[in-house]
Design a protein around this nucleic acid. Structure first.
Length: 232
DNA sequence: AACATTGACAACCGCTCCCGG
DNA sequence: CCCGGGAGCGGTTGTCAATGT
């Protein structure tokens, strides 16, 4: 992948950071390559974008990954593979690069079975317009918001009237979409599988609630019905 | 104290996709 | 429909601090 010559990585200085922040505050984000020039930075547009997205953006949450976040990352990785941007969209304030680094340094060694090969994960890669982290961060269907109305089925019920239900016990043993398919006894059509990964979709909302109930509010007895399943 | 190793993460690259002309 | 530019994604690696020998 990399050429024979080594690449010199140059850390961003605080002065460069201030230039970029100042420019974005005054002019917003438009074409990164042009922004770099007008901001007086000797950096590529890609480098500027990366610096902003992964470090300078005020939305980024500082501090260590919490236990809850770690659980979510692990579970989502089982379901999605290395689709860091999709995972980041569900963890407000965390970036795809941060999740990727955290996985590679903290969690990868603990991962056991059911790894998702890169080729497989890339086969189901979503269009960038649907996975834009910035737009997704603005959605209300985040895990944090799910904590406020985790029992709500308003969005879900608007889609379908099925009465089949999923219990926590079922979900705990259903860590992959395929497992969920198996449990439900009905395959997802492709669109639905994709929609599962879109946080702002009804499926995404459903999954967010699933994750919340499974990982953050695990104080049920395992048989309690968490929410009606309107999809299967 | 000096050197080697390891861990963490910032930053880069190539590839792919989207979109406008 | 095709093409080129821009943006986004995931993989990889360089750098540096911490830790071990």
């Amino acid at each position: 992948m990399r050429g024979p010559q080594s690449v010199k990585k140059v850390a961003w200085s605080s002065e460069e950071d201030q230039k970029l922040i100042h420019y974005i505050r005054n002019h917003g984000i438009w074409t990164w390559s042009e922004m770099a020039k007008y901001a007086g930075l000797s950096r590529s547009g890609k480098s500027c974008r990366l610096r902003w997205v992964n470090y300078l953006n005020p939305r980024i949450k500082r501090g260590n990954i919490t236990m809850e976040e770690e659980k979510i990352i692990s579970t989502m990785h089982k379901m999605l593979g290395n689709r860091w941007s999709v995972m980041a969209a569900r963890l407000p304030g965390r970036t795809d690069n941060e999740l990727k680094n955290y996985w590679n340094t903290h969690l990868k060694k603990h991962a056991t079975n059911n790894p998702v090969p890169r080729t497989e994960s890339q086969k189901i890669r979503k269009p960038k317009s649907e996975a834009d982290p910035k737009s997704l961060l603005d959605t209300k269907t985040t895990l944090s918001s799910a904590s406020e109305d985790s029992k709500s089925t308003d969005v879900a019920c608007a889609v379908n009237e099925s009465t089949e239900t999923i219990t926590e016990a079922n979900i705990i043993s259903s860590h992959t979409i395929e497992d969920l398919q198996s449990f439900c006894g009905q395959p997802f059509v492709t669109d639905h599988k994709e929609a599962f990964e879109e946080p702002s979709s009804p499926y995404g909302t459903y999954w967010n609630e699933y994750l919340f109930n499974l990982l953050i509010a695990p104080d049920t007895d395992g048989t309690e019905e968490i929410w009606p399943n309107p999809y299967f």
